[in-house]
């Protein structure tokens, strides 16, 4: 029995195929465009709001672009201008903390990312070269990331705020709390991002041929020299990518920072939340301005990563 397709002339079949491909392409792009709009709209709205004066924050019908664009919100969060007398004392104090939030975020995120990178690279090396933990250890490590942060947040809080102070008080006679400290937040960020670092660095280190290390060792280099002079230079671009990736994760982290700090250590994401719950009404303008400022480094780093990813993943250029 002849099928419908075989009954068609080759020319008809060709025209049909071209039409089908064109239709698929249009549908695909329509879906992607709609999704992009859906994702980008809140960012668009945030950026627009950051340039609106207080009268325009909530209007109906909405102002898609500011009718009277102003840099007032930015001046306020960076405290370039004198404080708006219309703001209450509490709101004014909050408005000043952008610098503190920025400083805290940079300090915590950078230190945690560097620490995770350092530990993760050596761990990945040992897993790649000595099969530490057995055959499936590399997969086991990733499962740690399946635990939602909310599950560990409370137990870590109990550790930081109760168990550790109690334990140090009993042993050393001085209560040392990890709650609301830089070290506390840096440690938890290091721990939560370590699986990513190990996983990413594994892919890069696996690419470095064993024989390069063998050659170096035969020439008298010790293990550490081999790592420093041969392995690390070859995975350097991978380390940059990994660092940026982890930095962005930390930068955008909210839940653990909210749970484990207050009021001393204030990262930007936590600061943003404070604006929202301010008792003095909602300061949408400055909030949007801070939101925009938080987003800019992520976008910039994202673009940088893209450039390095190409280099990182075209790693097979090593002559085998």
């Amino acid at each position: 029995m002849k099928t419908a397709a075989s009954a068609m002339s080759p020319e008809q079949a060709r025209v049909r195929r071209i039409r089908r491909e064109r239709r698929n392409r249009i549908v695909r792009h329509a879906v992607l465009l709609a999704w992009t709009g859906f994702i980008a709209f809140p960012i668009y709205w945030m950026v627009m709001t950051s340039f609106k004066d207080s009268g325009e924050w909530v209007t109906w019908p909405p102002h898609w672009v500011p009718h009277a664009p102003t840099l007032h919100n930015y001046a306020q969060i960076f405290a370039f201008s004198s404080i708006d007398p219309s703001l209450s004392r509490q709101a004014a104090e909050q408005a000043f903390t952008i610098w503190k939030g920025l400083g805290d975020s940079l300090l915590v995120c950078t230190t945690a990312a560097l620490l995770a990178l350092l530990l993760g690279t050596f761990l990945a090396y040992s897993i790649s070269r000595f099969n530490v933990g057995g055959k499936y250890f590399r997969h086991t490590i990733l499962t740690i990331r399946m635990i939602p942060p909310i599950v560990i947040a409370i137990s870590i809080l109990i550790y930081y705020a109760i168990l550790i102070p109690y334990a140090t008080g009993a042993v050393f006679g001085a209560r040392i709390s990890m709650f609301d400290t830089y070290i506390g937040l840096i440690l938890i960020y290091t721990v939560t991002t370590l699986p990513f670092v190990i996983w990413m660095m594994l892919t890069f280190i696996d690419e470095v041929p064993y024989t390069l290390e063998h050659a170096a060792r035969l020439m008298g280099a010790g293990r550490f020299t081999v790592i420093r002079r041969v392995v690390l230079p070859l995975v350097a671009s991978g380390m940059v990518v990994t660092f940026l990736f982890v930095f962005i994760l930390n930068w955008a982290e909210f839940l653990l920072a909210l749970t484990l700090t207050h009021p001393e250590v204030t990262t930007l994401t936590v600061l943003l939340n404070k604006f929202q719950s301010a008792s003095e009404g909602r300061l949408y303008g400055p909030q949007a301005a801070i939101g925009t400022m938080i987003t800019i480094p992520v976008v910039v780093l994202g673009i940088l990563i893209q450039k390095h990813l190409v280099k990182g993943f075209s790693f097979g250029t090593i002559r085998r």
Binding site: P209, H214, A215, V230, I318, R319
Partner: peptide, 9 residues
């Protein structure tokens, strides 16, 4: 070595 193992960097 068989693959020569020259350091590419």
């Amino acid at each position: 070595f068989q693959d020569l193992a020259l350091f590419p960097h």
